[in-house]
Design a protein around this nucleic acid. Structure first.
Length: 591
RNA sequence: CGGGGUGUAGCUCAGUUGGCAGAGUGCAUGUUUUGGGAACAUGAUGUCGCAGGUUCGAGUCCUGUCACCCCGACCA
């Protein structure tokens, strides 16, 4: 492609409303243009990069036996109603009526359609396992788009779905995806870490997110400094320190005027926060049919409540913070609250495991200005659930190896879910096993955001001159810059361009006559093209053309005759580095 | 959805007390340059986000509204 013909300008300055560097650079380099909040056009350079990412995705999906299909973007409401997600998902799902008045939705994922296809195609255990995938635009009306391509409303996603007879089959395909995702990360030049994650609206049991670690990330991750333990903070576990408060003593009421927080209370009574019991209040909403419940989440005073865990344990559709009125309505007093003496069917008490283990804690007396000493779980109150609901924090202890945990930010570029039979049961997607029994097909679901991947690569590979893209996803491998001024020189440059194209070297050719050399260099570097060739009268005097790698200032002379083979060689070297990374990519080792 | 911010030339931004719509950059044309975002000259470019209102007169003041950005909540 000649730069004069390339659609998409480079910008000297980035538009003011951009914050994230990858966003600024992709705008400046002429990769993307924003049409509306979270809605972008991909210009030719981005389109080429996206195609390359998609090609890698296709190769890796094909390699694990998945078959490419394409499913509809517009779905009838019925299939979403069958699985309950019509009700469960908020305005993120775009709904509209067609001309006949039928409720329709824009697909935000395709579990329902896959289950529907499974129902029509899969009848016998002999047809399993199966895996299908597609690469397609999705629309999710996010409450807030941000960060350029990091979080958008319209985006390209590779989504795949596995179908198996049982959990064991699912585990095999899940593992295959896990390994494939690491290979994909390596091939595009990113180190992705797999973290255990919440299943969110997908449902199911096991899930991992593939994270690009970066301060611009939206997710908080708990990562062990020593071993491979890593989890989204939403579900991260940690080794909780224990303290011995002695054998259970008799409960006693104590005046604690004005001591409404754990800190106040500890100071007032001269005790440590870990000798108290913290109560945090939520309201669990269960939709229109079931009554809301007030959820009392109890953790030891030195811990924080993890509301994702509370939401999951409460099985609520929506979990929100309770208002003071809602708390007093069930007989508790904010600031002096505990579940002692509360017996109400509309209250769900969820206690962290520590609460049941520790003795003689201080808890609220449900009376303004009073607390209770020596409160003991089981004796003085009985939680509905005793589970883990404490938030892991930086500095906590790894549950696997005992080392320190750190908090890091990450961008979720992919996720994998073991769905089980939630969707297939709802849709009646069954098969007959060897024994002639009807069973629900076991599903898995796996996504990768293609544009988000590109954004992460741009974030990772850049310098003060612009993008510095890996060969595997750069729109062109070579930028050929001609500074020739004589007709003979220009002819020579044209010939070289033709030869490069003929040899299959993807080349961007800058022979613009009306811009200075500096502009050509700057554009080539801003666009992130890995290899640069300069041809000029001066270079010919030195024996041929000069070439250099993006990111290096070392120019090498190579004769005109050898230029094409030299470039092919350099490209192969760059590819080899990434292939090697792919071969050494992490593999599933979790049994 | 809550809090904050910004809307003036393609982009970055100035615009005083309410009194002719501006600069840099980019764009067009020409001349000179020519290996790191050239110089000079000439020129084109505006629904001052939109709609009302106040005023002799509004980019500027008032009301409403829309869009975009940031933080939070939310998030497959």
């Amino acid at each position: 492609m000649r730069v004069v013909n390339l659609f998409g300008e480079t910008l000297r300055e980035a538009p003011a409303e951009t914050e994230i560097v990858s966003h600024q650079l992709m705008l400046r380099a002429g990769f993307i243009r924003q049409l509306a909040a979270g809605i972008f056009s991909y210009l030719p350079l981005a389109q080429r990069s996206l195609r390359k990412i998609e090609q890698i995705l296709r190769e890796e999906m094909d390699a694990i036996g998945a078959q490419e299909i394409e499913m509809p973007v517009v779905h009838p409401a019925e299939i979403w109603q069958k699985t309950g997600r019509w009700q469960a998902i908020d305005e993120t799902m775009v709904r509209f009526k067609d001309r006949k008045g039928h409720e329709m939705v824009l697909a935000l994922t395709h579990e329902e359609v896959v289950a529907e296809l499974t129902r029509s195609e899969i009848k016998s255990y002999k047809q399993l396992p199966q895996a299908v995938y597609q690469i397609q635009t999705k629309f999710r009306d996010e409450q807030r788009a941000r960060g350029g391509l990091i979080r958008v409303r319209e985006f390209i996603m590779k989504d795949s779905y596995t179908l198996d007879r049982d959990e064991a089959g699912l585990a095999i395909q899940y593992t295959a995806h896990y390994n494939a995702y690491h290979r994909i990360g390596a091939r595009v030049g990113l180190n992705l870490i797999a973290v255990g994650s919440d299943v969110g609206m997908m449902g199911g049991k096991v899930a991992h997110e593939f994270m690009y670690l970066s301060p611009i990330g939206e997710d908080s991750l708990i990562v062990c400094e020593n071993c491979d333990y890593a989890a989204n903070q939403e579900i991260a576990e940690f080794e909780k320190p224990r303290y011995d408060n002695g054998p259970a003593l008799e409960m006693e009421k104590v005046a604690t005027p004005g001591a409404k927080t754990i800190e106040d209370l500890s100071q007032f009574l001269g005790i440590e926060p870990h000798q108290t019991c913290k109560a945090v209040f939520f309201v669990a909403e269960y939709g229109k049919t079931l009554k809301n419940k007030l959820v009392v989440a109890l953790v030891r005073g030195d811990m924080e409540v993890n509301d994702v865990l509370v939401k999951n344990w409460s099985k609520a559709n929506v979990l929100r913070t309770a208002t003071p009125e809602e708390i007093t309505a069930v007989g508790m007093v904010p600031g002096y609250a505990s579940s002692v003496g509360i017996t109400n069917d509309d209250v769900l008490v969820i206690a962290d495991e520590l609460i049941s283990l520790e003795t003689n804690l201080v808890a609220g007396a449900n009376e303004e200005g009073y607390h209770l000493r020596n409160v003991n779980c089981g004796r003085d109150f009985k939680p509905d659930l005793i589970v883990n609901i404490a938030t892991a924090r930086s500095g906590d202890t790894c549950i696997k190896c005992g080392a320190k945990l750190t908090l890091q930010r990450g961008v979720e570029v992919g996720n994998i879910f073991q769905l089980g039979t939630r969707y297939t049961e709802a849709m009646g997607a069954n098969y007959v096993d060897e024994a002639g029994q009807l069973k629900a097909v076991v599903m898995g679901s796996y996504g990768i955001g293609v544009g988000r991947l590109l954004a992460c690569i741009a974030e990772e590979y850049r310098d003060d001159r612009g993008l510095k893209l890996p060969i595997s996803i750069a729109p062109y491998a070579v930028c050929l810059i001609s500074l020739c001024r004589t007709p003979e020189g220009q002819e020579r440059a044209n010939t070289l361009y033709t030869e490069l194209l003929g040899a299959g070297v993807e080349t961007l050719y800058d022979d613009r006559k009306d811009v200075s050399a500096g502009v050509k260099f700057a554009d080539s570097e801003l666009r992130g093209i890995p290899l640069q060739i300069v041809i000029s009268e001066k270079s010919m005097e030195r024996g041929g053309v000069e070439w250099k790698l993006r990111g290096s200032d070392e120019r090498t002379i190579v004769s005109l005759d050898e230029t094409v083979s030299c470039m092919k060689q350099e490209i192969a070297k760059l590819h080899a580095l990434l292939s090697e990374r792919a071969e050494n990519a992490p593999k599933w080792d979790k049994g």
